[in-house]
Amino acid sequence: MKLVVALSALTIVAAGCGGGGSDDNSSVSAASAINAAQGLYGGTDANDNTVGGVVLDSGAFYFVYADSSTDSLGLVQGTASAAHGTFQSSDARTFDISGKSASDTPILAGYNEKNSVQGAIYTSAAKQSSTKFNVLYDANYERPVALSAVAGKYSGSAGSTRGGETATFTIGDDGSIKGAGASGCTFTGTATPHGNTDVLDATITFGPSPCYYSGATLSGVVFVSNNQLLAALTLPNRSDAFVVAGSKWLMATAAVSAR
């Protein structure tokens, strides 16, 4: 998954252990039973951000955008319908982590099944201006993920619109998740394969203070490839998001560091 490697390599100044995710689908547009645009994708947008993410079979999508040269980082999340070449979402929200804001940003795009999605993310519900994007399908989506293959400890950056810090994110062989930020905020949860795809569904619960969202239970998705991890989640009411990007601790690296 090239999109994961590209995004995880960025220096992310994002929010500390105070974000997280679960979709609130009470106001989403109807999606196809099996979304025709489902898949992993990677590409760019008109602001020269690297864009990577997933459209699930349910129509729920998570797209992270980032640019280390401008300290740009954010997540676009929602649920889309995809039919007859048209990909659209009326409930999409952009969580501008570097800008510390969240807003409704509808999407209207075209798609070619197992090929690409390209179109515009409107910068407001009024649709007065937009940002164009173009992402290409990643066939790794069709390769079922094994928990044993992605299990391990990852370190990197974590963020929400409330702030950011370095953090660790550990996945166990049984799918258990635990993590901690430099502030002392902790979180625990679970990860399970999303059907026969290279995506993990994830749920986490944040610990007590100093976590921004103490006790909140969040859900979203996790991708792991080439020892790089990217997690994207939203709060239940979708008022904020939690993004994690990290690299896996390898035994060789740990041995060198211990000397």
Rank of each mutant, 00 (worst) to 15 (best):
Y154L: 10
T170Y: 09
T253W: 09
F187L: 14
N227R: 08
V145Y: 00
S72I: 09
V13R: 11
L200Y: 02
T161G: 06
T217V: 03
Q88C: 14
F133H: 12
I34F: 05
A36H: 13
A46G: 10
F169V: 10
K127R: 14
G181Q: 04
I121H: 06
N25C: 13
D138E: 07
S183A: 11
G20V: 06
Y154Q: 01
V222L: 08
F95V: 02
L56Q: 03
T105E: 04
G52F: 05
T205C: 01
N49L: 12
S101T: 04
S58Y: 03
V222F: 04
D91L: 06
V4G: 01
S68M: 12
G207W: 10
A82S: 11
A216K: 14
L218M: 15
A216C: 06
S155A: 14
G20D: 05
D174L: 09
G220I: 07
I177Q: 00
D67A: 08
R143S: 09
T105H: 08
T11D: 07
G52S: 07
R93D: 13
T186Q: 15
Y141M: 01
V28E: 07
F223V: 12
I12L: 15
G43L: 13
F223C: 10
Y111W: 11
A202Q: 05
A191R: 05
G181V: 08
P208G: 13
L108P: 00
S22T: 10
T79R: 12
A151Q: 06
V199Y: 11
Y65M: 01
S81L: 02
G20M: 03
S157I: 08
S68K: 11
S157H: 09
S130W: 09
V222S: 01
V13I: 15
T205S: 11
T197Q: 05
S124V: 01
F61T: 03
A139R: 04
R238K: 14
S72T: 11
T94C: 07
G43E: 15
G163A: 06
A191C: 08
G21R: 04
T188F: 10
N49D: 15
Y65L: 09
V150C: 10
G156M: 02
Y65K: 02
N140G: 08
F87D: 13
D138L: 13
G20F: 06
G195D: 04
S72W: 07
A180N: 04
Y111V: 03
S90A: 10
A231P: 03
N35V: 07
L10D: 14
G99M: 00
G156Q: 05
T190A: 15
A231Y: 00
F206I: 06
D198G: 09
D57E: 15
G175Q: 07
N35S: 08
I107N: 02
L10R: 13
D173W: 09
N47V: 12
D240G: 08
T50Y: 03
S68I: 07
V117R: 00
A6M: 07
S239T: 11
G19W: 06
L230N: 02
A231C: 08
K100I: 04
S26I: 13
T197L: 01
F242S: 03
N49F: 12
F63L: 05
L250I: 05
V117M: 14
S58C: 02
S68R: 05
D201Q: 10
G246P: 01
F87E: 12
Y111P: 01
D198Q: 05
V64Q: 01
A232K: 00
C185I: 12
V150I: 11
F133E: 13
T50R: 12
G119P: 05
N49H: 14
